[in-house]
Design a protein around this nucleic acid. Structure first.
Length: 299
DNA sequence: TTGCAGGGGTCAA
DNA sequence: TTGACCCCTGCA
């Protein structure tokens, strides 16, 4: 099953942006705070301003299934944001299937508006290398500094933002001051990753077209990329929904809600594969958000 | 004020 | 299987 659906979204152009109507299963807070992305900041009006694919936009979701996106137009929506927000997928159906399990039903209730973004694989790779044994606020900060150092400046509302640097932006860089981005021991991994992608030794587009198992193996050739980071890249930027990234939170929540015992990382991903199959990635996101909201497993 | 644990893992021994 | 690893925050 592919869970795709006929799109019934109505697009209306307004001054500085667009309004989308008939958008189901979309909650900005759930989407931007479920751990999949690091470049979206909450504003005072509960909207989120973020940077992706070299653009800055502001997104606000409303209870009546309307979404307002500022600093964009219909053309960019069709070209970039429709796919980025995975608007062609029927999350209602996914939730219905997963809700056959009572525990999942409860978790989904907390994050009912989660959607898995289709992010840029290159940016996702570097971002999740930085995420290893790190805190969210620190990860976001490092990515921001890294972007300021090497990425293109974008002005929006009188404020300067920086696009995540493309591999081209980095081609002649020395990286003598890479440590300024405060990524600590991960800096050496970042440099190695840049070299491997830049030289073509690793081809992310090719990996995206591989089967999940092969793709994970290939990603793990990059230093700083282990199982968890590889699975995040696969899920958040390569549409491999049969993945179940296991970090400390997923270990806690899976043990507490399903396995009812201590277990190893391998056991947890085996369990997920068995139980959720090709919806593992979606289940993972609902559970992750639920676990963090309720601090499950953390005494 | 200082000191120490620990955080959305990975690597090397 | 285990400890080190940058950097920073929270808390004693």
């Amino acid at each position: 099953m592919d869970y795709l659906k006929q799109n019934s979204i109505v697009i209306e152009e307004i001054k500085d942006g667009i309004i989308l109507k008939n958008v189901w299963d979309f909650n900005a807070k759930h989407i931007f705070e479920c751990g999949q992305c690091f470049r979206w900041d909450k504003e005072d009006d509960d909207s989120y301003t973020g940077i992706a694919f070299g653009k800055v936009i502001n997104v606000k979701s409303f209870k009546n299934n309307e979404i307002k996106i500022l600093n964009t137009n219909i053309e960019d929506f069709k070209r970039i944001w429709f796919e980025y927000f995975d608007l062609g997928r029927d999350y209602s159906r996914i939730k219905k299937v997963l809700s056959a399990d009572d525990t999942m039903k409860l978790a989904i209730k907390h994050g009912e508006g989660i959607r898995i973004l289709k992010q840029d694989p290159w940016e996702t790779l570097i971002s999740f290398i930085i995420s290893a044994n790190n805190r969210i606020s620190m990860i976001a900060r490092s990515i921001n500094i890294f972007s300021q150092m090497y990425g293109q400046a974008i002005i929006y509302n009188g404020k300067v933002y920086h696009a995540f640097p493309t591999i081209k932006d980095l081609s002649d860089t020395e990286f003598s001051n890479i440590r300024d981005c405060k990524a600590g021991f991960r800096c050496k991994y970042i440099i190695e990753a840049i070299k491997m992608i830049g030289s073509g030794e690793i081809d992310l587009e090719k990996i995206k077209n591989m089967e999940t198992i092969e793709a994970e193996k290939e990603l793990k050739r990059i230093p700083g990329v282990g199982s968890k980071v590889a699975n995040c890249i696969l899920l958040f930027s390569m549409q491999k929904y049969d993945t179940y990234p296991v970090d400390i939170w997923m270990k806690r929540v899976t043990e507490e809600l399903f396995l009812k015992r201590e277990s190893k990382a391998g056991e947890i991903s085996d369990f997920a594969k068995e139980k959720f199959n090709d919806l593992s990635g979606f289940a993972q996101e609902y559970l992750f958000y639920y676990a963090r909201e309720l601090k499950i497993g953390k005494e």
